Computed example of a mutant assay.
Amino acid sequence: MKQLFDYINSYLPNGISESDFEVVKGYFTYKRLRKRHYFLQEGEICRQYGFILSGAMRQYTVDDKGTEYIVHLYIENWWVGDRESYTTGTPSVYNIDAWEDTELLLISRPDVLELIQRCPAFAEMIRMMDDRNSIANLKRLTSSISGGAEKRYIDFVAAHPSLLERFPQHMIASYLGITKDTLSRIKRQLLLKE
């Protein structure tokens, strides 16, 4: 739980008190997922969000031809879940699975809502996370619609260098909306520029 405590404190200028954190801890449960095991499958309702203690995960959709489209990559100290399904209680259109053996702390939507009422520090962290998430999503959307493949890759490397070491090239290419061959060409061109 120390990892979650440190994470919450990283968002709050005054931190969270030990007594408030004792309240927060009571709402989380521990789960371990083995590599390639599902956290969520398409058609299920996302009833819990996870805080990743260790490991790596991916969120993706699969088209009629069996092609995977990665929409999110996750590592330690990131939250994982299908936000739309979690918030609305509707079936997910995504799969989320563990790319590495993963340890998580889970919390349900009703527990988040109750905890927001009980613990102002947790509520403030959620608000700040939502703000940052909204900004990051807008930047990714802008990059996708206005930036070329090379710019998307450069922006990705600048924002998430640690993901390059954790996920294979074909997943990063899918996340960026380009082919693996295009990503290889971009990486070669960037090396030549150095």
Rank of each mutant, 00 (worst) to 15 (best):
R58L: 03
E68M: 00
Q117Y: 05
S92D: 00
R118C: 09
V62G: 08
G55R: 08
E44R: 04
S108E: 07
D82N: 11
A98L: 08
E76V: 09
L104H: 03
D64H: 11
D101W: 08
T67D: 02
Y74E: 01
K31Q: 05
E114P: 06
M57Y: 02
T90S: 15
D97V: 08
S108T: 15
G89P: 03
R32D: 14
F51M: 10
P110H: 14
T61S: 02
L73A: 01
V80S: 07
S108A: 06
I96G: 04
V71I: 09
A98S: 06
P110R: 12
T88Q: 14
Y38Q: 02
G55A: 05
T87K: 11
Y38C: 01
K65I: 07
I107T: 10
F51P: 09
Y60N: 01
K31L: 09
Y30M: 12
G50F: 13
E100V: 03
I52R: 02
T88F: 10
Y60I: 01
E42T: 10
K35W: 00
D64F: 10
D64T: 02
R47S: 15
Y94D: 00
E100D: 12
H72E: 14
D101R: 07
L106Y: 13
S54A: 15
Y94W: 03
G55P: 02
T67N: 06
V80G: 02
R118T: 05
Y94T: 00
G55M: 09
K35A: 12
L53E: 11
R83M: 11
D101H: 12
R118P: 12
R34S: 09
R32L: 15
F39N: 02
G50K: 06
R47T: 12
Y38G: 08
D101V: 03
D111V: 12
T67C: 01
N95I: 06
L113N: 08
P120T: 06
S85L: 06
H37Y: 07
Q41L: 08
G66N: 09
G66A: 13
C119N: 14
L73M: 13
S54M: 08
T87P: 00
T29E: 15
L115Q: 14
H37E: 14
V71E: 06
L105V: 03
K65Q: 13
L106T: 13
R47Y: 09
S108V: 11
T87F: 13
R36Y: 01
L40F: 10
